[in-house]
Design a protein around this nucleic acid. Structure first.
Length: 438
RNA sequence: UCCCCAGUAGCUCAAUUGGCAGAGCGGAUGACUGUUAAUCAUCAGGUUCGCGGUUCAAGUCCGUGCUGGGGAGCCA
């Protein structure tokens, strides 16, 4: 008998097939049982009637506990009463692996309990949907860059130096010395851009920041394109085009998953280019004005010159259907490698893209400093050691060109698109300040 | 590093002014031939996070520690 997946059942109506999977839950009575069987591709209701299978097999079916694995064989039937429209009229059933006292019940659970059982929580419908959307986002990003002539350029996880001196790094023993886990592949991507013109890195990054919020993980995935001869506007356009491609792809391919998550897809359908570009000074004006009109609101007060907090990002996008891009941040609150605007020497030629619906900062990008002399002075200003950056300075010694790129936080993007409350649901096994298990 | 909150049955929670430790779900057993988080009946299930204190009496009040959650700072 042919083994098929649940999402192929519509092609087999009237035929006998085998489904292999796990029992989600079963209901029924003493003569008729409804087994919800999940096989990864979907869920199908398998119907076991005592009159069809006999006393012994019926008792076996009744004894299949939650999350036991099993094979069910029978006839595919189309029926409106069945979830999904198709069901399996069982002729034969076989338990593969019994599950005893499965900890996650169909009722509600707290986040601590669920995260302690993350390895099992992954089986539940919403987590299944989130990670399928994550998969779609990843491949949409790769396809987007591939279609535009970019080369995937993998950068190392072990690094000898910090990209941004301010951020805490994880240390690892590396034989008789120490290495740092990468907090960004950007510097290496710049070397790649000088070889291939257009590259992107896509990999895990590590930050030992003591942040315990819904917006932070200590290990997260980042996409970082880097393009030779690109300016700030080109960089922002690239970020916008990529974002639109990803949104449209998920809307096209993952409707069922968005529905499962009860995501308001009209919010995603409303996202459209061109995304608004806003000078930092304009954003600061809006925030100062808002704070004056809402004197009692926590997190609203804003001092021009400061970076934005989470509440500020939400205020700036509260009336917007699409992400906005804030440019020209004060250079002193940005990384050493950012080029400054010749017309406003105290401002960085960079941007932050802030998502709608309180998604926060999704992308940070900039034009890189391409002058050897200026870069050397920046490294000194930031009190960074010169020696580890000698190879990076070589990129400015040997045919330096204007270039730019950005970094997109994958989990933050998945959180925005899926509408989840927590970043920790947007990666299979989240790593946080107080959680490294399972 | 700082601020706020929480910890009671496997899970989610309740317990009045300090006065007998409770419910729903899950589990077990039984009934029911179209269930959709099925329904109904019965049963089992407790170091109230640890330590110390106040009190005739502490889940409840005080001190302290631990664990976790949310947020600030910092960041994607």
């Amino acid at each position: 008998m042919k083994r098929v997946y649940v999402d192929e059942l519509s092609q087999h109506v009237g035929s006998d097939v085998e489904i292999a999977g796990w029992l989600q839950i079963q209901r029924g009575n003493n003569k008729l049982r409804f087994l919800q069987v999940r096989d990864g591709s979907g869920i199908v209701q398998a119907i076991v009637a005592k009159s069809d299978v006999g006393e012994e097999m019926f008792e076996t079916a009744k004894g299949v506990t939650q999350e036991s694995s099993l094979r069910v064989r029978g006839t595919v039937n189309a029926d409106d009463r069945a979830p999904g429209g198709y069901e399996l009229i069982v002729k034969d059933l076989e338990i593969v692996g019994q599950s005893i006292d499965y900890p996650i019940s169909p009722k509600e659970h707290g986040s601590t309990f669920l995260l302690d059982h993350r390895h099992l929580w992954l089986r539940s419908k919403k987590q299944h949907a989130v990670l399928r959307i994550r998969h779609e986002v990843i491949w949409a990003i790769r396809d987007f860059f591939n279609n535009r002539g970019f080369i995937g350029f993998d950068t190392p996880m072990f690094t000898p130096n910090a990209v941004e001196g301010t951020t805490d790094l994880f240390e690892a023993k590396y034989f008789d010395t120490i290495a740092f886990l990468s907090q960004s592949g950007q510097l290496y991507a710049e070397a790649g851009a000088m070889a291939h013109g257009r590259v992107y890195t896509f990999g895990p990054t590590f930050r030992a920041e003591k942040s315990k919020t819904r917006r932070h993980l200590t290990e997260f995935w980042m996409v970082e394109p880097e393009v030779a001869f690109m300016d700030l506007e080109g960089d922002m356009q690239l970020a916008e085009d990529m974002t639109m491609y990803v949104i449209e792809r998920v809307l096209d391919k993952r409707r069922d998953e968005l529905d499962m998550l009860e995501r308001d897809v009209s919010k995603l359908e409303a996202v459209s280019g061109p995304f608004r570009r806003m000078h930092y000074d304009k954003a600061a004006d809006i925030l100062v004005k808002y704070a004056a009109e809402h004197p009692d609101e926590e997190g609203a007060p804003f001092t021009p010159g400061d970076d934005f907090g989470g509440r500020h990002e939400s205020i700036l996008t509260m009336n917007s259907d699409s992400p906005i891009m804030i440019t020209h941040f004060p250079a002193e609150i940005k990384a050493f490698y950012m080029k400054r605007d010749p017309d406003e020497p105290d401002r960085a030629l960079g941007f932050d893209m802030i998502g709608t619906e309180d998604a926060g900062e999704l992308i940070g990008g900039s034009v890189r400093e391409d002058s050897y002399d200026v870069l050397v002075s920046r490294i000194k200003e930031h009190s960074l050691p010169m020696e580890p950056f000698e190879w990076y300075l070589d990129l400015r010694r040997y045919g330096s060109v204007p270039h730019a790129g950005f970094g997109l936080g994958l989990e933050r993007t998945v959180k925005w698109i899926t509408g989840r409350d927590h970043l920790r649901e947007c990666i299979p096994f989240p790593r946080m300040m107080y959680r490294m298990k399972p």
